[in-house]
């Protein structure tokens, strides 16, 4: 047996209140509790975080890069979802 038996965890850190957790990196740990502690030691040494999540890497389902187009192309095609799409007469405020 070797440390390969320590699974890989993805670490998400909330840098301060009001912000989302952001992916910071990964690490190995034998279980969730230790993963959380290792994440605290490794990714918040300089007070970078107020909250940490750890997720087993195997639990993440990702979109395939090969599906890039069908997955995301249609969203790129709807400019009317963005405020800059609309023309407003000069001088109209608070819109």
């Amino acid at each position: 047996m070797s440390s390969t038996d320590w699974p890989l965890w993805e670490v998400f850190v909330r840098s301060r209140r009001g912000l989302s957790h952001t992916h910071a990196g990964s690490l190995h740990a034998p279980d969730a509790e230790m993963a959380l502690r290792n994440a605290r030691d490794l990714y918040t040494r300089r007070a970078e975080g107020v909250s940490v999540w750890v997720v087993p890497s195997t639990a993440i389902t990702a979109s395939s890069p090969d599906e890039k187009d069908p997955f995301f192309a249609s969203a790129a095609d709807k400019p009317y979802r963005h405020p800059t799409f609309y023309t407003i007469p000069d001088g109209v405020k608070h819109l």
Binding site: H28, D41, L42
Partner: peptide, 11 residues
């Protein structure tokens, strides 16, 4: 015994 633990002990 493992790198993560070196970081912890140093803290």
């Amino acid at each position: 015994p493992v790198l993560e633990e070196e970081v912890a002990l140093a803290n």
